[in-house]
């Protein structure tokens, strides 16, 4: 039965109604996840640096933003953006745009915590060596600290990407044309096979996310091995 459904509807699952209608399905899911996460990335770096700043006027607002966003469910943000954004900009905002905007705000907070952990996890000697050379804040941050912190945090970022993929399924509630939405369309058409349709949906998500978490694990092992070979030696104060 599942095979039959897949055979009849795989194109819808994959790319939605494209080219006869809007692009959707898995393609849209991936598109939104990638776009959401990449747009949130620079924002996340700014938030992380602000949270670690010695200046209160930078640190406090950034900390507040991160805590507020992390303390609220994603669906609430989706509703806020969906219903409030049109009032602000004076025109309706589509489901896909809404979801991407929401993801940028939401993921920026989570990513910033990952980046902050990466920065704080670096041996103290790295910043000290940069200081001792006479490098200022920006070259130290962008040439010494971030390249290492971001690289070390790659596995966590891939995990965050997995979360993002799963979160795009909430786009269903605002009719963002993504994978879950496609499954619902199929289900509405067939009417009688929800178990098979949603089973297929689950399998698709799982295959994608499991592959990615495996990549994350692989990366983690590789980075740990590189570190183990003496990339960073703990300073022994005398």
């Amino acid at each position: 039965m599942m095979f039959q459904i897949l055979q009849d509807n795989w194109l819808l699952f994959l790319i939605g109604q494209y080219p006869h209608g809007p692009i959707g399905g898995l393609a849209m899911t991936l598109f939104m996840a990638v776009l959401g996460l990449s747009l949130s990335f620079p924002l996340a770096i700014v938030l992380a640096l602000a949270r670690l700043s010695p200046y209160r006027w930078l640190r406090l607002p950034a900390t507040a933003i991160v805590h507020v966003v992390r303390g609220l469910p994603l669906i609430m943000f989706i509703f806020w953006v969906y219903f409030v954004a049109p009032l602000v900009i004076g025109r309706p905002v589509g489901g896909v745009e809404t979801l991407v905007i929401t993801l940028v705000i939401y993921e920026a907070s989570y990513l910033s915590e990952i980046i902050r952990a990466g920065i704080q996890g670096l041996p103290k000697g790295q910043v000290e060596a940069a200081k001792a050379l006479g490098l200022g804040y920006f070259p130290t941050t962008f040439r010494v600290v971030l390249p290492q912190a971001l690289y070390n945090m790659l596995p966590s970022m891939v995990s965050q990407f997995v979360s993002t993929i799963k979160e795009t399924s909430l786009g269903y509630v605002i009719s963002a044309n993504e994978l879950t939405f496609a499954a619902a369309q199929v289900n509405n058409q067939l009417m009688t096979q929800p178990f098979e349709v949603y089973g297929l949906l689950a399998l698709t998500y799982f295959a994608l996310c499991f592959t990615l978490t495996s990549v994350a694990r692989l990366l983690e092992r590789r980075i740990a091995a590189e570190r183990g070979s003496g990339l960073s030696i703990a300073a022994v104060p005398a």
Binding site: P123, G125, Q126, E128, A129, A130, K131, A132, L133, G134, L135, G136, P139, R143, V144, P147, Q148, Y151, L231, S232, I233, A234, A235, V236, A238
Partner: peptide
């Protein structure tokens, strides 16, 4: 920072930048 550029400092734990080559550590 200008003062620090006049004074070289060598650490017990080396504190080389691990993501840069030996040459990259120097050219930075």
């Amino acid at each position: 920072n200008r003062l620090r550029q006049r004074i070289g400092f060598v650490f017990q734990a080396y504190n080389l930048f691990p993501h840069l080559t030996a040459l990259g550590n120097i050219t930075l």
